[in-house]
Design a protein around this nucleic acid. Structure first.
Lengths: 200, 200
DNA sequence: GTTTTTAATGACTTGACGGTCATTTTAAAT
DNA sequence: ATTTAAAATGACCGTCAAGTCATTAAAAAC
């Protein structure tokens, strides 16, 4: 007899609306009222699905990184250094900049709290570092990558360095051509750094 | 006849107090009352020296980066690749992490505004990128760095990549030993990437 | 010591937004 | 068509902090 709705679908609808608002106007500039309007419902309804703005944000951040992880996981392991480098280039897409700026916005003021959104990003970074490390290890075995690098440390280094490029572009938007040049230089540096010295 | 105070000294005193508060409690958790207490004055007095919390923050960020710029400018140009790399290592100090976290905190919500604090950081990044580019150009001439890299793009890439390391450590504090390992791997990658190929 | 002008003060005003809840609406079941 | 329990609503509340301003304190000049 009662009215029944699809709880999960509702949460998805709200998260989609929130992502749109946050990306367009920024996280702090977005009021719960805005999210409600974007999701075509009243503010009060939001609170049936998320306990607070923080809870909503946590769910959003987690969903975002889970999706990237799933996608990246589905790629085959790179058989050569060239393929690895190709993959790194793909990790610097223009369409991730809006979300990156948003995370900057979200995480800043939240640095006091330990759980929540920050943890989700932290988890992802640990994962991607390990992911790169695995590739590096395999490529070392194949003679495609210098033997004298530490795969774990270098994997973490690559993750942080690429994120540095993304963050800077997200916050200090340069012309696309300039960003492309900077990215290319960074990738070239990493590629040369990984390449084994030619045997005389 | 009127009472006179040293306006600049007063601003410095307030900025020092604000830096302490922001670093310790975070930017958003710090209220103007807190800054006033730390500076040993009443809240109303702050507003004689800074029009708003934003204005205070802008001045603080600008002062911080100007100081780094002055310091870095005073170093002699690196005569070899080894010296350049040594300098890059110095650019990853543990004592900059608190401030970095704070800037993250400040810049996030402010991404809507264009002037102000963000501009100050932007200016600094442009400057440091150019600074590295100058070193790279000189070292290319000296045969210490590969000729086939673009100094400007690579300078910008190095600045962003190092900042990535700093930001990650600031936000997701890893044990010092781990950060040291990741940094070392990153620097090694950059060094190998810059080094000219050995002539057979 | 008196005057005069600027500096300092902190209680108060103001605006804003996250979250609540009494009321109304909806739809499933019979 | 009626019942009924859950869902939706949005006006309202409480909180909180930035910024103001009438008043008081300070010190320079004489």
């Amino acid at each position: 007899m009662p009215k029944i709705v699809d709880h999960d679908a509702m949460r998805t609808r709200i998260l989609d609306a929130a992502l749109g608002c946050f990306t367009e106007q920024g996280y702090h500039a977005t009021k719960m009222t805005d999210v409600a309007r974007a999701a075509k419902m009243a503010k009060g309804s939001l609170y049936r699905y998320f306990d607070s703005k923080d809870a909503l944000t946590d769910a959003l951040v987690r969903r975002y990184f889970d999706a990237i992880r799933d996608e990246v996981s589905s790629y085959p392991a790179p058989p050569t250094l060239g393929f690895l480098v190709f993959g790194l280039r793909q990790a610097l897409p223009a369409d991730r900049l809006g979300a990156t700026r948003m995370f900057f916005d979200v995480l800043g003021p939240g640095f006091a709290e330990d759980g929540g959104a920050r943890q989700a990003v932290d988890d992802f970074l640990s994962w991607i570092s390990g992911h790169y490390a695995g590739h590096l290890r395999a490529l070392q075995a194949a003679g495609e990558v210098r033997r004298d690098i530490d795969p774990d440390r270098t994997g973490a280094a690559i993750a942080s360095m690429l994120d540095g490029l993304i963050i800077h572009q997200a916050l200090f938007a340069r012309p696309d051509s300039e960003f492309a040049g900077t990215s290319a230089a960074a990738i070239a540096l990493i590629e040369q750094g990984l390449r084994p010295l030619a045997q005389p």
